[in-house]
């Protein structure tokens, strides 16, 4: 008899879920999007991703080992997810030293000072992305034009505006990528956000594994689509089709992978819906009227800040009350 019998109070039903399992499933779910970006942006994607993950894990290990004097817990994979998501949120021609600073911000400012995994009020990857965007506005907004792997562009990649950037600057709207291209990922942008289809495959996997629930992604994306749709119906010449708002920019990446972070999102279903709608509302306000072309990361950060309030407002009913 090698199985120990537990004698304990309730709950008696255990799941074999663990932090480790969840984190590695998220990593697995992000692999399709990673492969698509390697195909379109080439070697820099691999280097930046490895640097980002390596630095996040390394900084977490060093901080836990030498500053907090506790047993390092980097094998839970949370730092790997942070590193991967952070790398997905930068343009592929970003200098490597900026990537290192980003990893330091994510782990050293957004995560460990608050007490590590489970205690950080803000999503570390988004904090780092927003910090980099404000700190290095030039390097963070020069987007290489995707060139498929077999076209062998060894010269410096050509840079061009993102779809949303083009709309914001009132550029020539006939230059917008086609829906098909936006769906598979042939457009300028942060390298993990370009391929809608690969991200949706990953999100479907997480939904199937029940690591995320539908509430946040659906309410987030639906809010953006509905408000963008209303504006498009009122004045189609100024406000573009809501499909562009769905496929361009980081909406799918943000809604499925970053807003759903278990630590920084509400716990109850209704709370999640309020959270998702708030994210969507802020995103579309920033996209249509703000100074920045993209607002997904800002909106998630702002809504992260009110999560404790949402949790207070939508307490799950106690059993047998």
């Amino acid at each position: 008899m090698d199985k120990l019998l537990h004698v304990s109070g309730s709950p008696h039903v255990h799941s074999d879920e663990s932090v480790k399992k969840i984190m590695w499933s998220v990593v697995l779910a992000l692999v399709p999007a990673f492969l698509v970006s390697v195909y379109y942006f080439g070697l820099p994607v691999i280097i930046l991703t490895l640097v980002s993950i390596g630095c996040c894990v390394g900084f977490e290990y060093l901080i836990q080992r030498f500053m907090l004097h506790q047993k390092p817990t980097v094998d839970d994979g949370s730092a790997v997810v942070t590193g991967l998501l952070l790398a997905f949120n930068v343009p592929s021609n970003l200098p490597i030293w900026i990537m290192v600073i980003g990893a330091l911000v994510a782990i050293g400012i957004a995560k460990m000072p608050f007490g590590g995994l489970g205690h950080n009020p803000f999503n570390p990857a988004i904090v780092a992305r927003v910090t980099l965007l404000i700190a290095f506005p030039v390097q963070m907004t020069s987007w290489p034009v995707p060139t498929p792997l077999w076209s062998f562009h060894f010269a410096d990649a050509v840079t061009g505006p993102t779809t949303l950037g083009l709309i914001k600057e009132g550029g020539d709207l006939t230059q917008l990528p086609t829906y098909a291209n936006m769906l598979i990922g042939q457009m300028g942008g942060s390298f993990g956000e370009v391929s809608a289809i690969a991200l949706l495959i990953g999100a479907g996997f997480l939904l199937w594994k029940r690591i995320i629930t539908w509430h946040i992604p659906v309410s987030f994306i639906a809010t953006v689509l509905i408000i963008a749709g209303i504006f498009h119906l009122v004045n189609p010449e100024v406000y573009v089709n809501p499909m562009i708002h769905l496929l361009a920019g980081g909406l799918i990446l943000g809604a499925c992978f970053m807003a759903t972070d278990m630590v920084t999102s509400p716990t109850s279903p209704w709370g999640m819906i309020v959270f998702g709608c708030g994210c969507g509302l802020l995103t579309i306000i920033i996209r249509l009227f703000g100074a920045y072309p993209e607002g997904v990361s800002f909106s998630i950060l702002l809504m992260n800040a009110v999560v404790p309030l949402i949790n207070k407002g939508f307490k799950p009913k106690q059993f047998a009350h």
């Binding site: 910090t131 700190a135 290095f136 506005p137 030039v138």
Partner: peptide, 16 residues
């Protein structure tokens, strides 16, 4: 100039 980290001149950098 290309190594300046602009955020430290702005308000969030002050708080950090």
């Amino acid at each position: 100039a290309e190594y300046h980290i602009l955020i430290f001149v702005l308000a969030p950098g002050a708080f950090l």
